[in-house]
Design a protein around this nucleic acid. Structure first.
Lengths: 191, 191
DNA sequence: TTTTACCTGTGATAATCGTCACAAAATTCT
DNA sequence: AGAATTTTGTGACGATTATCACAGGTAAAA
């Protein structure tokens, strides 16, 4: 494995599950490498999502359009996966868009090809299941922020537990992700 | 299949995925049926969660204790699954408790036995993956409520899209689930 | 470098929401 | 049925937050 990109993906997967080189190679074979400049759209709201995306470099921003205003629902940094699962699973129109937040390199995995691999390799399906587990745990933690904490407390939670996100995401992008007005977040941060 | 309980579980699984009778039987063999009266604790915060729970009858309430106040993070009605995934996966102490909200009948599936079945039956692992997909989609939808909508709008969203929950969950239990003070929710509802 | 576009800070103000206190209503228990 | 417990409604008030408007700053583009 001389390809450096391949290594990043391999690391991410083996961190999650045991996988043979042959299974990994099968997975890598269906990967479609793509490059984006800042601001480019990877998935557009209203389209059907048919891929799972791995971010090798840069980060992606997932957002919903609400009355012309963009509300960020997720940020995906290098070494992580994202998609619109609802659209992917049921072939319905995606209610979110995914955009490159910086110059980004991604790998796209086609859904149908992936489902074929699930049938062929138990290891790959097992990987799929474990990835979902991890995503669900992260989502639960994020949801609970809104139930347990006030806006100011949510920001402080990120400071203590997810400082990476504060370093990379601008205040105005972060505000909708935390369900706080930009101005309020600016005032919270000043303290 | 004469057992009626068995049918409810069977229906839930076959709604999600194709499964052979023999795989289903393997799953049913490891199921541990238990009954609870209203208010009884099924999983206590601070314990390690090692089962996945299927609700056959009644409903369960999942909550976090915050400074002595209980904040509801989830409700699980009959025909659905719940657990504390973080605790289950990493053998760490659960930060949530799960309690019977009514007289309830549940099936518990031991984690280790389930992992064994995943190895034996591809169908069962596939079921596990699809269940996680569904849970993640539902969680994403719920999270977005907090980012997109105001408290009043969140309540109206439940009215239109999840009316079942309004019928079965009391206002005071619902308020923390929606991140709204009980009094405020009472006033919202009056309109 | 200069221009342009975007991002952040800040004041003023209004709207919303949370908290406290208590009464009324509904439900459960005996 | 009657008592006890829990749930819900409501007023008053204060705290927090959203919104609007605009200025200053920063970064990207020409």
């Amino acid at each position: 494995m001389t390809d450096n990109s391949k290594k990043i993906l391999y690391k991410r997967i083996t961190d999650l599950t045991e996988i043979s080189v042959s299974s990994f190679d099968k997975l890598f074979e269906i990967a479609n490498k793509r490059e984006f400049t800042k601001g480019e759209i990877i998935l557009r709201q209203g389209q059907i999502c048919n891929t799972i995306i791995f971010v090798e470099k840069g980060y992606l921003r997932t957002y919903i359009d609400k009355d012309g205003k963009e509300i960020n629902t997720d940020f995906t940094f290098e070494g992580n996966f994202t998609t619109n699962l609802k659209s992917l699973r049921s072939d319905t129109l995606s209610d979110t868009s995914i955009q490159a937040g910086e110059i980004a390199t991604i790998y796209e995995f086609n859904k149908d090809k992936l489902l074929e691999l699930y049938k062929v390799s138990v290891e790959i399906e097992s990987f799929g299941r474990k990835l979902l587990e991890q995503l669900l745990i992260a989502k639960e933690e994020h949801t609970n922020l809104f139930k347990i904490y006030s806006p100011a407390e949510r920001y402080r939670y990120l400071q203590s537990n997810k400082s990476e996100i504060l370093k990379r995401i601008s205040l105005s992008q972060l505000s909708s992700y935390l369900g706080i007005a930009r101005e309020t977040l600016s005032r919270i941060r000043k303290k």
